[in-house]
Amino acid sequence: MKKKWWKILCVAILIYSILGALLFDVPRLAILNETIRNLHFHVTMWFAMIILLTTSVVYAIKYLMSNKIEHDQISVEFANAGVLFGMLGITTGAIWAGFTWGEPWSGDPKQNSSAIALLIYFAYLVLRNSLEDQQQKARISSIYNVFAYAALIPLLFILPRMTDSSLHPGNGGNPGFNAYDMDSKLRIVFYPAVIGWTLLGVWLVSLRVRMRRIKTALED
């Protein structure tokens, strides 16, 4: 009961950011027009995904250092939540691309790399499920988690910037901020939305981790 405040904050921020994203005045830019509102959904969900996956890796490293199974449970749930936000991000991106680029999937370098990123985490989940022993499952999948994350960094942050063929806004500069011409009107919704989605992810994770703990307690 005592730690309820951040859940209320999460709901409040999300209501504010969704309403703000749909209703507030946005800058008029050529081609983007009203679709710029997707910034508050798509980009914020990607930010939340990156934060959640990074936390997952931190917990995987913590598990490898300490061998405490709780850390692994937290790590896998953060990865799950990250995958969920990744799928939401790819869907919102595809919807946006349908309006702006004319087709939902046009093989843009960023779309491809985000699809590969999801594949990596699906492989992680497959690996987890194929191992039986609890400790071994935790250890092997933590190792793959760290390894995959290291392979993910060049994929998400370096490679798309090296190609000139990407139409994605913000290419050739800071992610999203340059071409979107972030102004203060966008910022007052954008940053709260990032925090809101991340908090939602953390909330999800905390529920799932509690569920897992109860399950293991019942099994024992």
Binding site: L127, S130, P154
Partner: peptide
């Protein structure tokens, strides 16, 4: 893991693609 020969393909392709 038990079924390592299929698993190696699943694990390696996404990591190797970049």
């Amino acid at each position: 893991a038990p079924n390592s020969s299929t698993l190696i393909a699943v694990l390696s392709f996404p990591v190797l693609i970049p």
